[in-house]
Design a protein around this nucleic acid. Sequence first.
DNA 1: ATTTGAACAATAATCGTATTTTGTATATTT
DNA 2: AAATATACAAAATACGATTATTGTTCAAAT
Lengths: 197, 197
Amino acid sequence: MPKPRFKSTDYDDAMVNRILDAAEQCIHRFGIRRTSMGEVARVGGLSRGSIYRHFGDKENLVRGVLARRQELFLNDTEAVLETLPTLVDKVTHAVVAGRRDSEEGIFASLAETEPETVAGMYLDPAFYRRSVAFWPPHIRQAQAAGEISADVDVAAATDFVMRLAVSMTLFPDMGLSLKPRPRIRAYLQQMLLSGLG
Amino acid sequence: MPKPRFKSTDYDDAMVNRILDAAEQCIHRFGIRRTSMGEVARVGGLSRGSIYRHFGDKENLVRGVLARRQELFLNDTEAVLETLPTLVDKVTHAVVAGRRDSEEGIFASLAETEPETVAGMYLDPAFYRRSVAFWPPHIRQAQAAGEISADVDVAAATDFVMRLAVSMTLFPDMGLSLKPRPRIRAYLQQMLLSGLG
DNA sequence: ATTTGAACAATAATCGTATTTTGTATATTT
DNA sequence: AAATATACAAAATACGATTATTGTTCAAAT
């Protein structure tokens, strides 16, 4: 059981969690626009004042909800990655898990009520920063294991892995249809390790 | 002087062009939402009826304007690609040209007035279909020249090139900052030809 | 100490209603 | 034959009055 490695808000604070839970519940059901601070307070059984005390404003609260989801995703993913032997397997899992998350989680329900918001998030570089920080250890491990060349710069390799993962998550079909897991894996095996050479 | 290879509307028809010119001018200045068919007619010095005759409805007219821009981009790009020796040079150019186009053309001005619309386009797989059809000949040429392996499936290679190009256009920085042309080229040289192996 | 509840001005969402725009039809002009 | 001009119902949009929400403040409660 690996401990969380990616945190920004104080998830040990009970009040913070009650607020985030209530907010997420509201956003999940009504979307961001139609979620009011008063409603969050009512659902969470707490006062509006507390929310403002902990999160400052609505924008920040929403950020908090999404950040927590993302961190949860990253921690879950990280836990699985540690059980996988190769970089190819790891990226494959990241793509499959990323798609699942975007198809059924809070992002999916948000995409129905406020697609512009979700589209904006997916195109915002900031959305991927956390995930970028995630890969370097795995790159180094793959280099140590001889799976990939030790000559390639870790930052460059990270960038490349991120581009493939993000691209395959956002666009399951870019000419080739990369839906079933085995196909994703085979594709990554080729492109990640040898490119077109 | 290579002739256009990607056309859908009849660009030889003078009326069609007048309509598209007027519509593009309006969209460029006011955005899609605030462009009315009446305004397009006035700017183009023609009747509303003609527009409906040729394009059916507003949605289709907008599609026509964007499609023409995209085809122009593809034809211009194709013309340059034919002068470039290697696949790496070609993809490098596609990325640089793609960024320029998205930063200063109609897309840039649209992004200011209606960012949601532009975001939606960038995330719509249909937006990339035309460009996908664009690469296979270049892939085969690179294979014939021995630049890339003849063993890799053309469709798979196309998909890979598209993913890299789209990703690098949408996200100039994914951990690594890939802004100056030489950096883009060096990165592509590595990833496109050898991956991380 | 933190949470609550209530008051408050400033901002934003909502809701009818007036106005514009769309999309279609048709008679007239070029 | 295609473009225009006009007319029209249906749909979308803009406007202004009303209501709800936001973000701050502060005294009272836990």
